[in-house]
């Protein structure tokens, strides 16, 4: 009996996840024709990367071979996943509650809401991956970013990428829980968190550039280790040129990333459950704020 119940629950979670991913993809992509969608997916990330490229070019007179450039470029490219996945999970609460006004129907349907939210976030992985690929390709083709297909540590890259996406989805779950409880500024929460992590995780500059009292925040963030592993897997020697995480081996970094992901994952799970219960108790599920 217990096994049957568990199996039904698992099926429900899987189905919710799968359908939410499909729904998320439709919402993300079907607002326009494929051409405009492709332009949208290419122009935005490239413009974001080009801001840093121009800043770097102005100061260094175009010395794109220096390790710092690869550090900045790759960190910025992969950071797109943070905004995409984390904000994707949390934004779907606002979308369903305020925009489509379907959240109460989702709650009353046989849907595992947590799996549903993660599915909505994963849909953004698809669009995010396209943006990352375009950005990295542009860097390799036009800016001498030294990513060589033969030299990529593929197992490390795939492992780090997969763990990172799970970690980001779980972090998005915390934001989704908080958004369930608040009326004002819900739309800003994802951006505020992504902005703070952009600063503290050493995405576009080595952590030792930060004032000493701010660095511990970066060391506590799994994204810091995730980006470092991605850099090392793509351009090993370049990433290791910076002292911040140089003493750690790849295996140590991976272990830290896994440990922090498990920790953040567990915290996210319980935090979301708590927020969800509070939102139900306070009758906030069908709240429409028009804010």
């Amino acid at each position: 009996m217990v096994n049957l119940k568990s199996e039904i629950l698992n099926l429900k979670s899987l189905r919710s996840f799968r359908m939410a991913t499909w729904l998320g993809w439709q919402i993300e992509s079907n607002w326009t024709d494929p051409f405009l969608f492709a332009v949208y997916s290419i122009v935005k990330p490239l413009a974001s990367a080009l801001i840093l490229v121009v800043m770097y070019g102005v100061i260094t007179s175009g010395d794109f071979n220096a390790p710092l450039f690869s550090f900045i470029f790759i960190g910025n490219a992969f950071y797109q996943y943070v905004g995409a996945v984390m904000t994707g999970v949390s934004w779907s609460v606002i979308d369903d509650r305020e925009h489509y006004r379907t959240l109460k129907y989702i709650y009353t349907a046989p849907v595992d809401y947590m799996a549903y939210l993660i599915g909505r976030g994963i849909a953004r992985v698809l669009t995010g991956s396209f943006s990352v690929f375009i950005t990295i390709s542009a860097g390799v083709l036009f800016l001498q970013v030294p990513v060589q297909l033969g030299a990529i540590d593929a197992p490390l890259f795939l492992a780090a990428l997969a763990i990172g996406i799970v970690m980001l989805a779980m972090m998005g779950l915390v934001l989704a829980g908080i958004i369930l409880l608040i009326a004002h500024h819900a739309g800003y929460l994802g951006d505020a968190t992504a902005g703070a992590l952009y600063l503290f995780s050493g995405a576009i500059f080595p952590l030792d550039v930060l004032p000493e009292f701010l660095r511990p925040i970066g060391y506590l963030m799994p994204i810091t280790y995730w980006l470092e592993l991605l850099r090392r897997s793509l351009v090993g020697s370049v990433a290791q040129a910076f002292p911040t995480l140089a003493p750690f081996s790849n295996a140590q970094l991976l272990a830290i990333l896994i440990g922090l992901t498990l920790l953040f994952g567990a915290l996210s799970f319980f935090a979301f459950r708590w927020c969800d219960r509070r939102a139900r108790e306070r009758g906030l599920i069908d709240m429409v704020t028009n804010h």
């Binding site: 800043m55 710092l68 952009y198 600063l199 500059f205």
Partner: peptide, 13 residues
């Protein structure tokens, strides 16, 4: 936050 990130990029350079 955005300003700080770009300031530190310039400082890194």
């Amino acid at each position: 936050l955005a300003v700080a990130a770009y300031v530190y990029v310039y400082r890194a350079m």
